[in-house]
């Protein structure tokens, strides 16, 4: 509910239109690049990306300045919180689409290809030798035979790393609320370090998969779901780690105080979200 007194409405900003131009340049460039590797699409894509990054710097810069100036009242704070919560919800639904694809494939399409069910002719006419199994690259053996990553090596280690990072960021948050500056900086730095370690191991696992296991993005539907799910998760960890680094610098510069540190909390929420996605990945992609 609105508080008593005046509302706050921010003044004009050039960043939304610059950001729109940037996103357009990126996407339009990417579409041309995909269709013709030698076209203007490639430079256009990178120019667009640069504009988007420039926008993020500029937009956050002005928001941080206004926040430090004390322009934002508690109502604005609640709007920001709602914005972040619903953004994370939209991300959950995005991952939901890929998890849904994984479950559908395992529950329905692969068994059907193996001849389960009534009145299904694909198995009968096209691939009557195919027996349903998981992992699989399908009756066409798309991408050639491959082996999978054991969950009990690097993935387990990565699970522990991310779980620990959730603990360290919570300790950092408590330190911030208690005004223990040194502890805040140390534990925030630890969180960044754990995030970076996770990414290092994940990259290592990918190289292992490509070089030794013949497990690639092209390895049938197993490769597709494995790399798209872990890949999008890795992308989110990368973004989350960059956000954590930015927040570390903002802590070091003293942008936050005990009561007013929504930027920190938003990134912490995001980090927990990325953590929960990983737990689902570990369970459904690696173990089961």
């Amino acid at each position: 509910m609105a508080q008593q007194g005046a509302y706050y409405v921010p003044h004009h900003s050039v960043w939304p239109i610059v950001g729109s131009v940037g996103l357009f340049t990126t996407m339009f460039g990417a579409a041309h690049w995909l269709n013709d590797a030698g076209s203007f699409g490639r430079p256009m894509f990178f120019i667009g990306l640069a504009i988007v990054i420039f926008t993020l710097f500029g937009w956050f810069n002005s928001v941080i300045r206004e926040s430090i100036k004390g322009s934002y009242n508690s109502q604005v704070d609640v709007s920001f919180r709602m914005g972040m919560m619903w953004f994370i919800f939209s991300e959950v639904m995005f991952f939901g689409a890929f998890f849904g694809a994984l479950f559908y494939t395992r529950m329905f399409s692969v068994p059907w290809l193996g001849g389960e069910g009534h009145g299904l002719f694909t198995h009968h006419y096209l691939w009557d030798q195919y027996a349903a199994a998981w992992p699989t690259n399908g009756p066409g053996d798309v991408g050639g035979s491959f082996s999978t990553v054991s969950p009990w090596g690097l993935p387990l280690l990565n699970t522990l790393i991310l779980l620990t990072s959730s603990v360290t960021i919570t300790i950092a948050h408590h330190a911030l609320r208690a005004g223990r500056r040194k502890q805040l900086l140390v534990f925030q730095a630890l969180t960044v370090l754990l995030g970076a370690t996770f990414l290092y191991f994940q990259a290592h696992e990918y190289m292992e998969a490509y070089e030794h296991l013949n497990l690639t993005l092209q390895s049938g539907v197993y490769g597709s779901t494995f790399f798209m799910l872990t890949g999008f998760h890795g992308l989110h960890v990368t973004l989350g780690t960059i956000m954590l680094i930015v927040i570390w610098f903002r802590c070091a510069k003293g942008h936050f105080n005990k009561e007013n540190h929504f930027g920190f909390e938003a990134v912490a929420w995001y980090w927990h979200f990325v953590d929960v996605v990983w737990l689902c990945l570990f369970l459904f992609v690696y173990i089961m």
């Binding site: 399409s109 399908g138 991408g143 993005l217 539907v221 490769g223 798209m228």
Partner: peptide, 18 residues
């Protein structure tokens, strides 16, 4: 997008998709 340009098999029955 990935099925068309990057060789995934989400919607390709030969690769186990649908």
């Amino acid at each position: 997008l990935t099925d068309k340009y990057f060789g995934t098999s989400f919607f390709n029955a030969a690769g186990g998709g649908d």
